[in-house]
Design a protein around this nucleic acid. Sequence first.
RNA 1: GCGCCAGUAGCUCAGAUGGAUAGAGCAACGGACUUCUAAUCCGUAGGUCAGGGGUUCGACUCCCUUCUGGCGCGCCA
Length: 563
Amino acid sequence: MTENSGNIKESLEEFVKQALQSYAEAQGVTLPKMTILIERPKVKEFGDFASNAAMQTVKIFKKNPMEIAEGIKERIPPSPLIGEISIAKPGFINFRLNPAASGIALKTILAQGADFGRVNVGNGKKVLIEFMSANPTGPLHIGHARNAILGDSIARILNAAGYAVTREYYYNDAGVQMKNLGLSLQARYRQALGEDVPFPEDGYQGDYMKEIAQMLVAEKGDSLKSTQETQAFTQFAADHIIKLIDADMRALGIYFDNWFSEASLHKNGKVDRALDRLAQQGMLYEKDGATWLRSEQFGDEKDRVVIKSDGEKTYIMPDIAYHQDKFERGYDILINVLGGDHHGYVPRLKAGVQALGFDAARLHCIVFQMVTLLKDGEQIKLSTRAGKFITLKNAIDELGADVVRFFFLMRGADSQMTFDWQLAKDHSMNNPVFYVQYAHARCCSLFKKAEEMGITWLGVEQGDPALLALEEEQTVIKTLERYPEMVRLAAETMEPHHITVYLCELAGAFHTLFTSGTKDETKRFLRPDEPALTQARMTLVAALRQVLANGLNLIGISPMEKM
RNA sequence: GCGCCAGUAGCUCAGAUGGAUAGAGCAACGGACUUCUAAUCCGUAGGUCAGGGGUUCGACUCCCUUCUGGCGCGCCA
């Protein structure tokens, strides 16, 4: 295990823990089980790290926190990492690291390269993340993108955090909606052949159905003209629409490992098997001619019907079977990403999973709030049923995949976000995507410039990090050090936006440093008159470029070399 | 009526297991380009963290309550 900043933090935690233990023994007090927290103070005057252990233990020691802090401080073993320990007002113990620590950070970054920031939260556990799962009934609109991008980014982050992740798309190719789709295509097909047939009342109205009908005509001629069976139409439409969806996903850099069909669950008897299992567990009962699931006892609002009095299964049944299948495939953790309009469904599904005998805590449902699109001064709500929508393809074509991804990752999943089309379209400094990408491009540009100037970077070993004494440089280094912690945070909370926010901050620290060089030549990176300093600074730029690239990859955005 | 999510600067939003002086971008105003890419930077102004209680050494964060907004509450999917 290479030493890095994450470990510095962990070492400090260990030091404080031991010191606290030793102090407790000296005081003849038994410590309850507690976690020692080390945090980074917001205000840099307080140092690099701080612990609130003394304040947390006031009641245990029955002493003034300042006094406890002093007692702990005395017992912290000397370390080459720690420069200074001080105690402040209410009872904080503040740590300032030795400048040498920043050298270690840069070395670690460059030694680990693309692996810097990989942390071990998951311990190799198998995760199945199911996302998108939009029914193949029409093209995706821009609101769908939030699901796709969240899911994919979480997958990337968990992957970096030591989980073995599988991405899966579940599509409902059974049931009434699909039948409806088939009927819609059938009508369009016959219309395309010149017949005057009515269009189903609640059919899928979009023009895309006409296009698909044209394709069907091209492929099959009029051979299906008098076919009453809708299955062939459904199949054709669904296959085609799934291809469109997959194309959109690929355009966003998203690749599913599995496409899972609902119909397959029915075909191979998995739905019936799940039903049997529920019955065996005594989770079903009959009432009013229907079969009910005892979901209320697992936290659902009420019991749910799983088989209607007409003998048809309700929609929840295949979903329960699907989740049984997921667990049986050996996954430790299941993640579902779904829109806020489906949040009511979560307790139901969890109850179903528990009724089967699985631990519902292994199923994480990530719920994101709806998106409003702001375009041409108009607010458009993006629900699936909204008549007016902008297709995802349209957005990717006009804005670019990076912009679309970044915008959805700037905010937490549970913020009702507004997608500002004008801002997204603005390829200028107002657009935060370019702010971060520009930072990466600037790093690359510095290396090109160095080459032009005949300067060669000789690698980490040649740059003495102690020369990086500017305040702006230190800010950049401290921000770089935090990267693994950010990955850990994003993984533990399954919230990718922490990475995005962090990258903006890192880019900002670099831009500040860079621009300081335009005002004061001594602050420039490339100074032929100061070879040693130039080497050290190039080391910093190399590390920075690496972390920016790693972070951007983590949220699926390309690090541009030139802009 | 019940449940979930939210309410932080004029606008869009950050604020990790409760911590020290609540942050950023945009918009406004004032500055910095004979440059290592100004797609950048610096400064000024902007706040009763929706309101009210509570928990404690300490609350934007946790609990209760009121108000406002979004979304859900079927033998629909």
